[in-house]
Amino acid sequence: MKSKLIIALLFFAVLSCKKADAEVSQDMAITAVKLPAKKLIGSEAISNSGFKDAENTTIEQKIIKNGNLRFETENLETTYEQIKIAVKKGKAFIQNDSEGKDYGSIYRRITVRIPSQNFDSFIKDISTGVTYFDNKEINSEDVTEQYIDIDARLKAKKKLENRYIELLSKATKMSEMLAIEAQLSAIREEIEAKEGQLRYMQNRISLSTITIEFYKTIAEERGVTISYGAKVWNAFKSGFYGISNFFLGLLEVWPFIIIAIALFYFIRKRFKKKNK
């Protein structure tokens, strides 16, 4: 009798899980309709910072902001110091910092993570003194619906986890315990995965990412600072080095030269004797 009761409760828990997922999907379909940019409820205006659901509960919008800037500067160190001041002012931190040399320029590339509420003021601060941007990209992604969906499914999985824990406390047979524990293990893996998704999403929401690349153009050395006299002197040195290399090459093959001279002298002497 108890075995049948446990099986019936397991069946009920599985059905409840499917029903919970269906309800979450239905709620998200309704929520997706209720995401206006600006909505008037009675005499109260709801701005872009959030909206209210059917139960009059304010839900904060989840926005991911990213920026990508590239511009030329006269002094790399001065620009870097300006960025450090803006970083400190905006309560941000530098995540990556690299520098290098391209064809005709030297550059520095910095990745900054900054609280989202300070994003716009930070962009304004580092733009001070910039004549124009080679590249300026500002992206904002609204992930409110996705965040609510994951959060709702996470709550449903936790409720299901509690039901299986109750079933496990009532199980008497080893086979029933093993079956319930297997289901619990699968549910807990899903819970951990969704919690990880929420943490990652919340990190990107709370901290915006801005990549800043600034560079300085440098003149090519070749053909710019070399005078005509320097070119003549370089040509003279090149000729001298050429002669030196020629004689050094002769020294390396001197045995063959001696043999060639001896053969030439021997053949010439024999040829003179025949003519006499």
Rank of each mutant, 00 (worst) to 15 (best):
I212L: 06
R188A: 07
T128I: 12
L198P: 04
L154N: 11
A193D: 13
A152F: 10
G249F: 13
S206T: 13
G249C: 09
E252V: 14
Y132S: 15
S127K: 10
E190H: 10
Y228C: 08
E195W: 00
E195N: 13
L178W: 06
I138T: 08
E145N: 11
L251G: 14
V232K: 07
D142K: 00
M174V: 12
K157W: 09
G242T: 00
G239N: 10
I243G: 02
N245C: 10
R222Q: 00
N118F: 02
I123G: 06
E166T: 05
R163M: 09
F246D: 05
G196E: 12
S208H: 05
F122G: 03
E181Y: 01
V130Q: 00
A235H: 03
L167P: 08
R222K: 14
V143D: 00
L248G: 07
N139Y: 05
V232W: 09
G129I: 10
D125G: 02
V253H: 06
V130R: 06
G129P: 02
Y228A: 15
T131D: 14
E195S: 15
E176W: 01
F236G: 07
S238E: 00
K158H: 08
W233F: 05
F122C: 01
R204T: 00
I126K: 01
A156G: 00
S227T: 15
S227H: 06
A182F: 09
L178Y: 05
G229I: 04
M177G: 03
I210Y: 07
S227K: 12
I205W: 01
G242N: 13
L263S: 08
L184K: 11
G242D: 00
L178Q: 14
T209K: 06
Q117G: 00
T225K: 14
S238Q: 11
N234A: 15
E190P: 06
A193L: 11
S206A: 05
S140R: 15
L178S: 11
T128F: 06
A152C: 06
R188I: 13
D125Y: 09
A262F: 09
R188H: 03
I187T: 15
